[in-house]
Design a protein around this nucleic acid. Structure first.
Lengths: 237, 237
DNA sequence: TTGGGCTATTGGCTAGGCCACTGATCCAGT
DNA sequence: ACTGGATCAGTGGCCTAGCCAATAGCCCAA
């Protein structure tokens, strides 16, 4: 029943809960059988029996899948798939060797627009938060750090300043992927300082309320990260 | 027990599940009591009793809150708050009446980039699919239709031609929201024909392999849709 | 002081059951 | 033939009751 990696000493305990495993099995099952949006999955009682768990646990798994938008549970009718791929695409991209370009493209799309909107909509509080992130990163970089946290705060502050819930949500969606690239990028020698300069350019354009300049500055900034990323994976093809 | 708005005839049924209400009450409780990350919430048995629900339902609510990152449930220890604020974004978007501008912003961000990438990467098959969508929409419009389906196919073909899984996934994420605006937009007199012209401009730029022109054409196209959408919500600031 | 074991507390999960909702079917009345 | 209401099987929603498992604090012996 309970299965545990035996000698997996380093790293935290596996400690996954049953409903998580069940949810994963369900998404896997959906993928294997090629179910599309609108297709029905088996009734709870049958599915619970087949997976060897109680209906309560299965129900937890369905709640989890419902919250992340993979299925819709309809009282008296059944449970249907809403977004077949949703959960797995992020994984798929992570597994993909040359995933960096995709992330760069997406960042460019979202953050360029975010910067332009921020330039139009930022309040004084937004600006203060951006400056604070900038200051924190500067301090960290001066002290020889990589400014990872400040970098993240800066982009978060710009996102907030754009006052677009939808774009913010999409940024959050890919935030985990970005975080990985950020770490690698800022580990390049001299990179934190260059990144900080890029941030300052973006911040000034936002302060001036110039959308085009903000977009251009953010585009350059993302492109710089892109250059760094390309150095790293010549093997990918 | 079950509570229902009595004379709330117009609008859809309330149809919320118990765990959702419970989750909301918990987040509200967290906010009211000013709990910060790391603070503990009452044990399940007590909380269930206090809220008047079974432990199973409470457990579903905690799963939901765990999935969206509000709490962390620790076996044998208790449940602690992780991110006090974050829960409400998706709800907020859905509930927000004037979400149209957000959708426009997001489409502009994603589709402009998609068009540019499509101009760089499109294969002949991609181009054929784009042309087919264009032809289908033209035929429909000539026959007096609104070309809704062709419009959707066109944007789908452009998305595919960009060959970016991540961007495609984000487009899918907002596809439902877009679909609503599309219907309204294409219902405006003369709009289908104008939209078709916009599509043709995008397609030609993609055919020519000119990213900047493709991006500009797509931007104009989205802006045109934006103008239409603005007609509908003069109350929006 | 240290180490091991006990125990209360707390979440994890199961079993079984009843209720509410949905959709299809059937039947009576028009 | 068609409409409308009643019925019924299938499905999810929720509950009660209970045992298992993990954690943390405590006490006691070495």
């Amino acid at each position: 029943m309970t299965e545990r990696s035996p000698a997996a000493f380093p790293g935290r305990l596996n400690r996954s809960r049953l409903y998580e495993q069940v949810a994963e099995q369900i998404t896997a099952w959906i993928a294997e059988n090629g179910l599309r949006a609108g297709d029905r999955i088996p009734p709870e009682r049958e599915l619970a029996t087949r997976l060897g768990v109680s209906r309560a646990t299965l129900s937890q798994a369905l709640v989890a899948l419902e919250v992340i938008g993979v299925v819709a549970v309809r009282h008296g009718d059944g449970t249907v798939v809403t977004r077949a791929g949703a959960a797995r695409i992020v994984e798929a991209i992570r597994a993909h060797a040359d995933r960096l370009p995709e992330i760069i493209d997406t960042r460019d799309a979202l953050e360029t627009k975010l910067a332009a909107l921020a330039a139009q909509r930022r309040t004084d509080e937004d600006l203060a938060r951006i400056d604070a992130a900038l200051a924190g990163m500067a301090e960290d970089v001066e002290a020889g750090g990589r400014g990872v946290q400040g970098d993240e705060q800066f982009h978060g502050a710009v996102t907030a300043a754009a006052h677009s819930l939808l774009l913010a949500r999409l940024m959050e969606e890919i935030s985990e992927l970005i975080r990985e690239t950020r770490l690698e990028s800022l580990s390049q020698p001299g990179r934190p300082r260059a990144s900080l300069a890029g941030h300052r350019a973006v911040a000034e354009a936002i302060r001036a309320g110039d959308p085009a300049a903000a977009a251009a500055a953010m585009h350059d900034h993302v492109a710089m990260v892109s250059d760094v990323a390309l150095l790293r994976g010549p093997a990918a093809g």
